[in-house]
Design a binder for these strands. Structure first.
Lengths: 223, 223
DNA sequence: ACCTGAACACCGTTCAAGT
DNA sequence: ACCTGAACACCGTTCAAGT
């Protein structure tokens, strides 16, 4: 009876924290935040709910874990670029990642337990600003502003029915709800801008981003 | 047997949608989002859970309702001011309201059913910008940028343990977690800025806000 | 070491009944 | 018209047991 373990074994691939987190993200991506339960996760993994507790202490740890995985997907600011293009690159990557996991942004609320990928990410962004000559105080201003914008935009993208392919339908239904005489400005903006054929809410992101980067540049080089 | 109703009646004040929403907000404010359940709400109101369903269709309607109440607390942009001070006033009010209901911002995720106070709020902000000479397109840019910033800042405030009275303790504990050799820039920012005596994260809000207003002003009056 | 059956104290919600 | 008891199909988690 050879004691070898995991060598040519035909048994099921064993559970692991990584496999668990990957499945959890898959469920949240496909069926939303509410569908991610210990029971649904266990079923997805072909296991009983109680087995999960051998790899994580509780559901909180799973939520902390998948948020850290998401942060790990965001590209770090490239070191060989100027601060401005480095910040632009990183902000655009963050927005893309958060848009692909709409459940993640609102979940950041209760997560006060940042994981290693999250800390590494923050450290790299701060380091990039410091290397570019931002004072500690200016770095704090810049990071607070940039991250608020990125998270806030992501949060709105998760809510608004605008940028979907189905935009006209959904938005049209919403418009029907508020009579234009009661909310005239909202109706005007909707019909003459949001509902126009070429409209893509995602374009707003880079416009606001450049405005913020302009402002930071001016803060760094006052003239 | 007089048929008068509610005249000098000593019986319990009857349930109503308003009373229900007010209690729901009180629970969320005091004990957090997770503590707000149909059962806890019923208990707070001195009633059985099933009675709630006489005033709302389901829990979703309660969540939609309390979000709309929160929006109603945000001051509208004053009509007698210039766009810049009107936007500043409204943004500061929004941040204050969202900070006093930390459960609200992340909840806006799933709420795709804006109530009347929410619509009135949006309509007033858009109207204020339009009246100041912003084109429809510029109004869309400005509103997207301002709201992303306000919501994102509120979301971060709900997470970060910074601006609390207990900041030094909590932040100190977090610092202890990441050794300064692994996340040197994070450690530097924490020890030399965030953990300094006079630090107040809330101050960051108005700094970023002015930068954004500067940018919008420049967009409106290019020179 | 890893998995699990049964159970506990919770959820939101329905349905048929009470006044 | 308004409230409710009992029940259903869910939650996350514990505990004592299986291999």
């Amino acid at each position: 009876m050879p004691a070898r373990v995991g060598e040519g074994a035909t048994k099921r691939v064993p559970l692991s924290r990584e496999r668990l987190l990957r499945s959890a993200i898959a469920i949240a991506d496909e069926r939303g935040n509410a569908a991610l339960t210990m029971r649904s996760l266990a079923q997805e993994l072909g296991v009983k709910p109680m087995s999960l507790y051998h790899h994580v202490a509780n559901k909180e740890e799973i939520l902390d874990g998948i948020i850290d995985v998401v942060f790990g997907e965001i590209e770090l600011p490239p070191a060989d670029a100027g601060w401005r293009s480095a910040m632009r690159h990183r902000a655009i990557s963050a927005r893309r990642v958060l848009a692909s996991h709409p459940w993640a942004t609102p979940l950041m609320e209760s997560r006060t337990n940042p994981g290693p990928a999250t800390l590494r990410h923050h450290d790299a962004v701060i380091g990039s600003l410091r290397a570019a000559g931002f004072s500690i105080q200016m770095t704090a201003h810049a990071y607070s502003l940039l991250d608020s914008y990125v998270y806030g935009f992501a949060l709105q993208e998760a809510v608004l029915p605008f940028d979907r392919k189905t935009a006209p339908d959904v938005a049209g239904a919403i418009i029907a709800q508020f009579p234009s005489d009661e909310y005239p400005h909202l109706a005007e903006l909707a019909t003459e801008h949001v509902l126009q054929p070429g409209y893509d809410h995602g374009n707003e992101f880079e416009i606001g981003l450049e405005l913020i980067l302009d402002g930071l540049d001016r803060l760094l080089h006052p003239n």
